[in-house]
Computed example of a mutant assay.
Amino acid sequence: MAKRIIGLLALALTLCAGAVQAAPLKIGVLAPISGSSAADGNDIVKGVKTAVEVVKAEGGIPGFDSIEVDVQDDACDPRQAVAGANKLANSKVAGVVGAYCSSATIPASEVLNEEKITMITPASTNPKVTERGFKYMYRMCGLDSQQAIAAVKFMKDQLKAKSVFILDDKTTYSQGLANYVADEAKKAGLNIVAVEHVNEGDMDYSAVLTKLKDSNADVFYMSLQNSSAGIRMIKQLRQMGIKSAVLSQDAVYHPNFIKEAPEQAQGVFFTFGYADKNAPVYKKFLEKYTALNGEPGAYSAYSFDSAYALMTAIKAAKSTDADKIRAELMKMNLPGASKVIKFQENGDSGSNYVIYKVTGEAFKEYYNPETNKLF
């Protein structure tokens, strides 16, 4: 009898303690907060924090008294990404949004998958991210292979290009995407006049741009790791009077590209995911994000959706167990800010790449590869 009374008292004390102070829900973020990709990394953090505020306004998540965001800086460095992933695992996060660079996401996901922690990348497009059969790895953006198809279709069907000059900066992301573009260009019958490389962090591109000018290529495909490199390159390209049409990709697509090179950026084309800005969820995201942070960056909506999907799954599962979260993510058909979120078995969520053109102070929707029509 005495043992039973003691047991009941212990249970009562446990329940009372839980009622007084419930545990916080911890959401991890792995992103480049420092280094050349810091603009995108900080946009990712802001997108996650915006999603947290939206969830809190919707009533929060039962069982948790608060939602905390634990940010780790990976600086797009593989070793720093692994260290950050270990820190997040040790702090018992329920899931991680990140990383930005594929070179950081791939090694970090090995740590998190082994620890059974959900990871959703809003930005890493290298196919290897979801090709390894990792049960707890998901992707909100599209893939390099899908982006390359959209890029080459635009070159051939809209620009009527016959030749293309391809350049990357040797990073896992930019070189991988450039390789896919080269493969698709060959299939489409385009003449690849050159595939050149620069180093990430280079300041002077005159040597490779001279080759571009001499080639008279119809299209210059500029695959770089971040917008800061794109800004330097487009300024030097315009100064040299190069006439090739310029097509770049999602890493260079950032408001800073226009802000820092307002004249030189005019007419540059980009592949990036299409977001319906009249959709209710996008409007909710934009209103909250703008109030907290100002203008969204390139990956703000993708990171918002990654965090919102994660928290929605946790709420539905009533658990932070990765297998229970996965069960909810797999049956999800959730309207998001960037797209309708619906994951495939391998963790991908599909692509929605379209072509944008810098016009005035904005990226304007220009061409839809699926319909083969201009907007």
Rank of each mutant, 00 (worst) to 15 (best):
R4Q: 12
L11P: 00
L13A: 13
A23V: 06
K26D: 05
G35D: 10
V52A: 09
V52D: 07
E68R: 06
V69E: 05
D70C: 06
V71G: 01
D73C: 08
R79T: 15
V82C: 04
L88E: 04
N90D: 13
S91W: 01
V97F: 15
T105Q: 02
N126W: 00
T130G: 05
M140T: 09
L143E: 11
S145M: 10
F154A: 13
M155F: 13
D157S: 12
A161P: 05
A178Y: 02
E184H: 07
K187A: 13
T210Q: 11
T210K: 12
N216D: 14
D218N: 08
Y221K: 02
M222W: 14
Q225V: 10
G230S: 09
L237C: 00
Q239C: 03
I242E: 03
Q249N: 14
N256E: 04
K259G: 01
A261I: 06
G267C: 08
A279V: 07
P280H: 14
K283P: 10
K284T: 14
K288F: 13
T290P: 03
T320W: 04
T320R: 10
A327N: 09
M332S: 07
S338A: 15
I341A: 01
F343S: 01
Y356A: 01
K357N: 04
E361L: 05
E370H: 05
E370W: 01
